[in-house]
Design a protein around this nucleic acid. Structure first.
Lengths: 143, 143
DNA sequence: TATTGTTATACTCTATAACTATA
DNA sequence: TATAGTTATAGAGTATAACAATA
């Protein structure tokens, strides 16, 4: 590594600071659609694939199963998700987006991508590609 | 951008997940030296330059001024920092590392860099360079 | 009156454990 | 008895406001 490596801030500090900046930059997009960060995480996970249990959903978004209940209540109340007992095992809840939920997700995500692009716009295309690829490589999958 | 860009997770999710992984990877290094994350942040900021007020220090590490007081108490108790009223304005506290504080900082930082290098070791040298450069570019300076 | 540091308070997040309903 | 979901409780982290000392 070049000599400047010794003087750089710690990687953790850089990443955490960038994370805070990203959350701040995305907040207006979420607020505009009246969706919380956890609410968006749920919509995003269910957009990928319906889930058979709330625990699996919680794991997928890195949350505790007790933590998403209020979020699910609200999303269901607003008819953005469906949440019904599995007839074959009535302990578990089948979770999926409603059409309205998918539509909202697409809108919010578009706004979030715009905010991200603004932040990334100062990079060259080559740097941006490498950065995103490395980020996906280093960012751990949920267990 | 290539077509795969549309399917990538949101940038915020990637960065936040990486941040959590980094904090987890660095925790053992901090614990080995009995230093909290905020404690390390303080040592790190003061290693760069002494500070003339606690508020400036708090700003430098992205914390509230009320939040670092307990941390400063403990570091001072352990004789890792000096914290004395400025004779010219006795409201403010002059802050700097003691030799012991600097020595501890160097040790902890070495361990933290080792943990970071383990995470980065799967990257090519070229990717690593670009990644660190972009990260420093995007990560906002404290106000 | 304004500013630095401190303390007190309340509020949000999160983690743990108890509880219910099903199996 | 074991598991999915829920609720209740307590703990940590954070933000706000009040306070003391100094200017």
């Amino acid at each position: 590594m070049p000599d400047s490596d010794r003087d750089r801030p710690d990687l953790g500090a850089l990443v955490v600071r960038l994370g805070r900046a990203l959350i701040a930059a995305e907040r207006p997009a979420l607020a505009a659609h009246d969706v919380s960060m956890w609410g968006y995480a749920v919509l995003s996970a269910l957009a990928d694939e319906p889930m058979r249990t709330q625990a699996a959903l919680a794991r997928a978004i890195g949350a505790d199963k007790t933590r998403i209940i209020g979020t699910l209540d609200e999303l269901q109340e607003r008819a953005l998700i469906e949440r019904e007992p599995d007839p074959e095992d009535r302990r578990v809840r089948l979770l999926r987006l409603t059409p309205a939920g998918r539509q909202l997700y697409v809108s919010v995500r578009a706004d979030i991508r715009l905010a991200e692009e603004r932040l990334l716009s100062e990079l060259t295309l080559a740097d941006k590609r490498v950065f995103l690829r490395v980020l996906q490589r280093l960012s751990p999958e949920p267990d």
